[in-house]
Amino acid sequence: MPIATSKAARAFAASILWGLTLFDEVWLLTAWCEVREDFRNFRLDRISGLNETGENFRPQNGQRFKDYLAQL
């Protein structure tokens, strides 16, 4: 789903994310980012909006949560 995130400089960036899990004291969303073609962590308190695309995530090798964990 596309989301808008606010950055410290109050600039906004849009990313298409496929959410995998939430964790940590500040509630992070670990997701596969279509824009960066990599895993990213997003703070939920900095996500200012989202748009549903109607698309479903189809896990591919390298984009699953177990692939993320293997990179740690």
Rank of each mutant, 00 (worst) to 15 (best):
Glu34Ser: 06
Glu34Lys: 11
Glu34His: 14
Val35Glu: 13
Val35Cys: 10
Val35Asn: 13
Val35Gly: 01
Val35Ile: 10
Arg36Val: 05
Arg36Glu: 14
Arg36Met: 10
Arg36Lys: 15
Arg36Cys: 15
Arg36Thr: 14
Glu37Phe: 06
Glu37Arg: 15
Glu37Thr: 07
Glu37Leu: 03
Glu37Cys: 12
Asp38Tyr: 06
Phe39Thr: 10
Phe39Asn: 05
Phe39Leu: 09
Phe39Pro: 12
Phe39Met: 12
Arg40Met: 04
Arg40Lys: 14
Arg40Thr: 02
Arg40Phe: 12
Arg40Ala: 01
Arg40Ile: 06
Arg40Trp: 04
Asn41Tyr: 02
Asn41Arg: 11
Asn41Glu: 10
Asn41Phe: 02
Asn41Val: 02
Asn41Ile: 01
Asn41Asp: 15
Asn41Thr: 04
Phe42Lys: 05
Phe42His: 13
Phe42Arg: 08
Phe42Met: 09
Arg43Trp: 10
Arg43Gln: 14
Arg43Pro: 11
Arg43Lys: 15
Arg43Gly: 05
Arg43Ala: 15
Leu44Gln: 02
Leu44Ser: 03
Leu44Glu: 03
Leu44Val: 13
Leu44Thr: 11
Leu44His: 01
Leu44Gly: 00
Asp45Lys: 10
Asp45Ala: 05
Asp45Pro: 09
Arg46Gln: 13
Arg46Leu: 01
Arg46Val: 02
Arg46Met: 10
Ile47Asp: 04
Ile47Arg: 06
Ile47Leu: 13
Ile47Ala: 07
Ile47Val: 15
Ile47Ser: 06
Ile47Cys: 08
Ser48Thr: 13
Gly49Ser: 15
Gly49Val: 00
Gly49Ala: 15
Gly49His: 03
Gly49Leu: 08
Gly49Pro: 02
Leu50Asp: 03
Leu50Ile: 07
Leu50Trp: 14
Leu50Val: 04
Leu50Gly: 13
Leu50Cys: 11
Leu50Gln: 09
Asn51Phe: 03
Asn51Ser: 11
Asn51Thr: 09
Asn51Cys: 08
Glu52Trp: 09
Glu52Ala: 12
Glu52Gly: 08
Glu52Pro: 07
Glu52Phe: 13
Thr53Cys: 05
Thr53Phe: 07
Thr53Val: 01
Thr53Gly: 08
Thr53Tyr: 02
Thr53Ile: 02
Gly54Gln: 01
Gly54Val: 00
Gly54Asn: 01
Glu55Gln: 11
Glu55Phe: 03
Glu55Pro: 00
Glu55Thr: 02
Glu55Leu: 12
Asn56Ile: 10
Asn56Trp: 02
Asn56Leu: 09
Asn56Cys: 10
Asn56Glu: 14
Phe57Glu: 08
Phe57Gly: 02
Phe57Arg: 07
Phe57Pro: 00
Arg58Tyr: 05
Arg58Trp: 04
Arg58Ala: 11
Arg58Cys: 06
Pro59Gly: 07
Pro59Gln: 06
Pro59Asn: 09
Pro59Ala: 11
Gln60Thr: 11
Gln60Gly: 04
Gln60His: 11
Gln60Trp: 00
Gln60Asn: 06
Gln60Met: 13
Gln60Val: 01
Asn61Val: 04
Asn61Gly: 06
Gly62Asn: 12
Gly62Ser: 08
Gly62Tyr: 05
Gly62Ile: 06
Gly62Pro: 05
Gly62His: 05
Gln63Tyr: 04
Gln63Thr: 15
Gln63Phe: 01
Gln63Gly: 00
Gln63Trp: 01
Gln63Pro: 03
